[in-house]
Lab assay of single mutants.
Amino acid sequence: MSIQHFRVALIPFFAAFCLPVFAHPETLVKVKDAEDQLGARVGYIELDLNSGKILESFRPEERFPMMSTFKVLLCGAVLSRVDAGQEQLGRRIHYSQNDLVEYSPVTEKHLTDGMTVRELCSAAITMSDNTAANLLLTTIGGPKELTAFLHNMGDHVTRLDRWEPELNEAIPNDERDTTMPAAMATTLRKLLTGELLTLASRQQLIDWMEADKVAGPLLRSALPAGWFIADKSGAGERGSRGIIAALGPDGKPSRIVVIYTTGSQATMDERNRQIAEIGASLIKHW
């Protein structure tokens, strides 16, 4: 067993022997301040990774656009098919120029040779490549099948209805392509620590998230040296922004954090800054 596999296998073990965790309302004060600064709703939840206990939450059962955070769930569904012998990570998928959609920095470079399922998941999570996500959605049967996968996990809230990039439209009061912070946090925890996926697939999923290259201005910008984070960000229309993450000190994750916002007129930089400040408060009061 590799060191990384050992780390993920012992996530519940280490967490069980940690000192009790206590909620700190100071972080919620910052979440509410972010709402004021952005002029928009902000949803927040913080779960203990081992027990699933909610440590703090704000608007945990209000719907927010998922945006690209759905790509972690998508690759979880792909990995479940791999575990069941219905898919192979090494299978190569070929596609054409007509398949390319807006923001496809990886797939646009491989029109000639195609990409493997493993490479597509890596591109979808680490670079948020939209064509990679659409190609992977095709392998599982489309958005409705991802929703069905989530329902089978016990998540009857999260739903995907459309493809990239239309799913980022974020129309107010439109339930399409949305989740709730509580539902997303619980589902992410199941994917990373539950028995739904094999140990190898859980490790692969967290490795992809740990290698995320496009979430630097968010929670990662607030992390002290030595902290662990595996995350996936999302951005959408109407001032929408979000991030889902597993993080913790001492090089291992111990909490799940989900943050979503929508309806702001603020710039992307300002949305990023507010999420980073929430992260800084979380870490300060850990």
Score class of each variant (00 low, 15 high):
T267Y: 08
V31A: 08
H24V: 14
T179K: 02
E61D: 14
L282M: 13
D83A: 06
H156S: 13
Q86F: 15
T139M: 13
M184E: 00
L219D: 01
V106C: 09
V78G: 00
E102I: 12
T139V: 14
M268L: 12
E26S: 12
S128A: 01
R63S: 07
R220N: 03
V72A: 08
W163R: 09
A200F: 10
L120P: 01
F228Q: 06
Q274C: 12
T179H: 03
G239V: 02
L219T: 03
A170D: 07
R220M: 01
S96P: 07
L89E: 06
E119H: 08
A183I: 10
K252L: 15
I243A: 04
Q203E: 10
L167G: 02
R41V: 09
E87Y: 05
N130Y: 02
P217A: 12
L136Q: 03
D231C: 05
A222H: 10
G76M: 06
T262F: 08
S233Y: 00
L28C: 07
V29A: 15
D177A: 03
L282V: 13
G248P: 01
E61Q: 15
E166T: 11
L199W: 13
Q203P: 01
A245R: 02
E119L: 02
D48K: 03
H24S: 15
V82G: 06
E164K: 01
E62V: 08
A222T: 12
G263L: 07
L89M: 12
V117Q: 02
I206N: 08
A266K: 10
E175L: 13
S51L: 07
L160M: 10
R255E: 01
R92H: 10
I54T: 13
Q265R: 13
L196G: 12
H156F: 15
L111T: 11
L73C: 08
L150Q: 06
L137Y: 09
T139Q: 15
N152H: 14
L199N: 11
A245P: 01
L111M: 12
D36E: 15
R81H: 10
I45F: 15
K109L: 14
G142W: 05
E210F: 11
L73N: 04
E175A: 12
F228L: 06
N173K: 14
G234M: 03
S80G: 14
L135P: 02
C121Y: 00
T267C: 11
V258P: 00
P25S: 10
G248R: 04
T116Q: 09
H24R: 13
R92L: 13
